[in-house]
Simulated scan of single mutants.
Amino acid sequence: MAAASSTLFSFSFPFDPQIQTLSFPLSSAKPRFSPKPFSTFKLTSTHSSSSSSLTVSDDPFNTGRFLSNDELRRLRLLETFLYRCDLPSGGSLSVRVMRPHETDPTVLLLAASFAESMLLPQPYVKFLAFLVKQYLLDRRSLMPHTATLVAFYTQTAAAAADQDQEQEQEARLAGTVELSFDIRGANATVPSPTPPRDKPYICNMAVRKSLRRRGIGWHLLRASEELISQMSSAREVYLHCRIIDEAPFNMYTKADYKIVKTDSILVLLTLQRRKHLMCKKLPLLSTPPETDLSVSDEQKTM
């Protein structure tokens, strides 16, 4: 998490079925990156290391802290996770955990989506990108108790021909979503109504503007649920949806999410929109996780 001197801001995106709540810290540290334009990526296969240590500098999932054997195993599960599907509109989608070299494009996707939804001038994107960057780096250090997923869209040759576009087989960053699996990965500040800190939580979902209305948000949600089922023995998963956002609400309802609590009308006095806290009970896996990360290592030894 952020340092004690940092201030945490929470922003809510307006109407969009593929954008949820964004929360990130404001730090006094100097920017550690230079924003770059959206990039294209070539998907490559991932091979798990047989080493029991994550201190190797070229390890893309190095958290910078000592991990237990169970955390190492679950970190490797995150490394090999892959969700794939074909989209009805043409093209295919691959969803996996964000790699370090994909942080800057993901930051820009979130910052641009927020600035667009709040009608902020373009210069604000760089400032928002700085905030989001600090937040993602802090959250990354908490893996495997939390994870940021990224979705890559590949357009098929047939779909490109139908749209009179050049054929492009490279995967493009299409969307992102953040997950927390247990109390150790829970964010210190979340929107109201407050979800249980020891239960999985889905937030910070955004889809690239040019690729919206293709069902990418739906598959980001499905990929999130699939990974949560593998990473946590908890069956309930939570998310927020603003009352005014009819399309996201319909999407979550279609995915079997139910309202468990709604903001009081008094929340309007804080200049925030009223929100629903929604929950879904995931089906049991035939082979449940070996351990429950909602219990800390300290508690296990007691």
Rank of each mutant, 00 (worst) to 15 (best):
L173P: 01
A174T: 06
G175E: 00
V177N: 00
V177H: 00
E178P: 00
E178S: 13
D182T: 11
R184L: 15
G185C: 11
T189G: 06
T189D: 11
T189K: 14
V190I: 12
P191K: 04
P193A: 10
P196T: 08
R197Q: 14
K199A: 13
K199M: 13
P200R: 08
I202C: 03
M205C: 15
A206R: 06
A206Y: 01
V207I: 12
R208A: 11
L211T: 02
I216T: 08
W218V: 07
W218N: 10
H219D: 08
H219T: 04
H219W: 07
L220G: 04
R222Q: 14
A223Q: 04
S224Q: 04
S224H: 00
S224D: 10
S224Y: 02
E225R: 04
E225P: 04
E226R: 09
I228A: 03
Q230L: 15
S232R: 05
A234S: 14
A234Y: 02
R235K: 15
V237S: 04
V237W: 00
Y238G: 02
Y238Q: 05
L239C: 09
C241H: 03
R242P: 00
R242D: 04
I243F: 10
I244L: 12
D245W: 01
D245Y: 05
E246H: 14
P248R: 10
